[in-house]
């Protein structure tokens, strides 16, 4: 298990190097020393995946880009080319900008909290011996719960009639009105999203911690008396690659995978409720029938995600060198 988190990283590190070689026109190194040399068989094996990718990835992606330059008639009678209008409309509209800033805020808070709590629990679970397996199982099991189910359970907890959180807030003299008050809804979204994401971070941090060689920890035990110092100087730097990987994954999670949670809590009533950019794409496209605008927003999101992913792989490339 020691080097497991690095395995994919290695592939993609090499993969990037291969891309460079490919661009520069050199022949790529064969992956294997011996390979089959048949012109048709590989295509037979590749065909199913390629077909799915072409039809369900490239076709819609291209369509998203094209329709972002058109203004579509709401009744479906043709479309007019409008150039970058959809983009400028989106980027200058107040609604879009406030959604964008909420998305950023939401990302920062959810990522910080779920990473922090996940790390804290992983460090403690790594330390205890008694009951370690039980803690692990309990802390991991929530991972499997679907975001909409998390949203539903969360909604009950924030229910205005009988939700425990509403009652707790009432003790402190706060009238919690999730679904009506902007910041109340935002808090509920944050709590539920963090709750759902902690197990994922926990699993990766724990596996990262367990891949720190025992003897390195022991050397640290001899070198430093204070447990906090050992954590800060030795454990944390060695966890940095895992943490960075998780940082990107968590941002992606908050941007995209929280969609069902928002949908369940906000329930198609955007009125005065916070939402993320992805939810707005869905709302404008499917509820507002603004296909061009929705597509333009999609393309903007594509650029953001693509940048994040490239960043992640670039980093993973370097991450290989540790250890």
């Amino acid at each position: 298990m020691t080097d497991t988190p690095l395995t994919l990283a290695q592939t993609d590190g090499r993969a990037l190097a291969r891309l460079r070689r490919w661009w520069s026109g050199e022949t790529a190194n064969p992956v294997k020393r011996v390979q089959f040399d048949r012109p048709l068989t590989p295509w037979m094996f590749l065909l199913p995946q390629l077909a799915v990718v072409a039809i369900f990835f490239y076709w819609p992606s291209v369509q998203a880009v094209t329709s972002s330059f058109y203004l579509e008639d709401p009744f479906g009678f043709g479309a007019t080319f409008v150039g970058l209008d959809n983009y400028t409309d989106a980027l200058t509209s107040r609604g879009y900008l406030s959604t964008a800033s909420f998305t950023a805020f939401f990302c920062v808070v959810v990522t910080a909290l779920s990473l922090g709590i996940g790390l804290l629990l992983a460090v403690k679970a790594d330390k205890v011996i008694r009951g370690a397996e039980t803690y692990k199982t309990l802390l991991i099991s929530v991972y499997a719960i679907a975001p909409p189910v998390a949203g539903l359970i969360g909604m009950m907890f924030f229910d205005m009639h009988m939700g425990p959180f509403t009652e707790i807030a009432a003790w402190f003299g706060h009238d919690l009105r999730v679904g009506i008050d902007y910041w109340d809804t935002a808090s509920a979204l944050i709590v539920i999203s963090v709750w759902k994401q902690i197990p994922y971070n926990f699993i990766f941090f724990l596996s990262g911690l367990q891949s720190v060689p025992v003897s390195v920890r022991e050397a640290a035990l001899i070198d430093a008396r204070s447990g906090w110092r050992r954590f800060r100087d030795i454990t944390l730097p060695l966890l940095a690659p895992t943490a960075f990987f998780l940082l990107v994954i968590n941002i992606t999670y908050t941007m995209f995978d929280t969609f069902p949670i928002i949908d369940v809590i906000v329930k198609d009533k955007p009125a005065n409720n916070p939402m993320t950019l992805v939810y707005k794409v869905y709302l404008d496209g499917f509820k507002g029938n603004d296909i061009g605008g929705s597509s333009a927003q999609s393309v903007i999101l594509m650029v953001v995600v693509a940048a994040l992913t490239v960043l992640q792989f670039r980093f993973l490339e370097r991450r290989v060198h540790y250890g």
């Binding site: 003897s215 022991e218 050397a219 001899i222 070198d223 430093a224 060695l238 940095a240 250890g323």
Partner: peptide, 29 residues
């Protein structure tokens, strides 16, 4: 605690801190 015993240990797989330079590895304790 190990750190209070005034001992130094050389491990089988060296247990060097991978993120520190040779200088920092030696100086850390």
């Amino acid at each position: 605690d190990p750190a209070e015993r005034d001992i130094a240990m050389v491990f089988q797989n060296y247990a060097l801190y991978p993120h520190m330079t040779v200088r920092d590895n030696m100086a850390y304790g």
